[in-house]
């Protein structure tokens, strides 16, 4: 595998690490399987790209992208908490609706090219060059900086009163309601927060690859879950700090594994989603499989 393939995979792992952190908030903290992310990733890309082509600063364009993602997450949250639609179904509904919304945002087209537009990497390139680092690594450095900032912010948030209420909402909603927390509120804010991170990721990916596409969100949730389970399998910590950091490391390792497999021609790029889904199935069934094997050994001993 070439140096460029490795750095490319790390770069992808870092930027999609933001998405994975978002999926972590819903899937692990709130225990809310949220498929909205397949729609909110291209939503962030679309909003940021349209803002840039209309002359907004690329850095500032990240803000409306995150706000749009937050609103998309809120819709899923409200469908669940107010209309009592099953969370999984609610998120599928939002995701489906977002497909149309994303095309609407992009002015009726399925993509917005950013080839000749300014991006966040322009000013960053000069800064990185002044540090004596190859400009090729600009986006990696930028993503690393952003991921570290988000990781620090999430660790801080999870230790606050509100963060503790979020964790309790996912663990035991009945208990935390009896302690005075409106779980409807924590779920809506939590899912919104998650999707704002996913949209931020989408905006950065679009600026990095030079185009926003309506189809770029396909498989986001599966990649996010795969990254989470890779991180958890390798670290398996219970403390929130360990869990958050392992999510990002999992994202990088997941992208490295994919790049390795592709470079060795283990499978074709079009098989990627099938392979990823299989990884998630294997990882999620691992605890049951372990228990099964353990119990079988026990039974055999008793039969002797």
């Amino acid at each position: 595998m070439s140096f460029f393939a490795i750095t490319g995979a790390i770069e992808q792992g870092l930027v999609y690490g933001l998405m994975t952190l978002g999926v972590f908030i819903t899937f692990r903290v709130l225990d809310f399987p949220d498929l909205t992310v397949d729609g909110s990733l291209p939503l962030g890309a679309a909003v940021s790209s349209v803002c840039i082509t209309n002359g907004l600063d690329p850095w500032l364009s990240l803000l409306p992208a995150m706000v749009a993602g937050f609103l998309a997450g809120m819709v899923t949250g409200l469908l669940t908490t107010r209309l009592k639609i099953l969370h999984l179904l609610a998120s599928i509904l939002t995701m489906t609706a977002l497909y149309s919304v994303n095309i609407m945002v992009m002015g009726g087209r399925p993509n917005v090219p950013l080839i000749n537009s300014p991006t966040v990497f322009g000013p960053a390139r000069k800064l990185v060059a002044s540090l004596g680092v190859s400009p090729w690594l600009t986006s990696s450095f930028l993503f690393l900086f952003l991921v570290l900032a988000v990781v620090a912010a999430l660790i801080w948030l999870m230790r606050t009163e509100f963060g503790q209420a979020l964790l309790a909402t996912g663990d035991n909603p009945r208990m935390i309601t009896s302690l005075g927390v409106n779980t409807g509120f924590t779920i809506v804010v939590g899912v919104g927060l998650s999707n704002s991170l996913v949209s931020l990721c989408g905006a950065l990916v679009a600026q990095n690859q030079g185009t926003a596409e309506v189809s770029m969100g396909v498989g986001t949730i599966v990649a996010g879950l795969a990254s989470i389970v890779v991180g958890e399998t390798l670290f398996g910590g219970r403390r929130i700090v360990t869990r958050i950091v392992s999510v990002v490391v999992g994202s990088i390792l997941y992208r490295l594994a994919i790049a390795t497999a592709l470079s060795l021609n283990v499978f074709k790029p079009s098989n990627l989603n099938l392979v990823t889904a299989s990884i998630v199935v294997a990882a999620l069934s691992l605890p049951r499989l372990k228990a099964f094997i353990r119990n079988r050994g026990y039974r055999q001993k008793r039969n002797v």
Binding site: L157, R159, T160, E161, G163, G180
Partner: peptide, 13 residues
């Protein structure tokens, strides 16, 4: 200990 109180961004414990 925070039953019935507004939960903000102060430390959880």
């Amino acid at each position: 200990l925070r039953r019935g109180r507004q939960r903000g961004f102060r430390r959880g414990v």
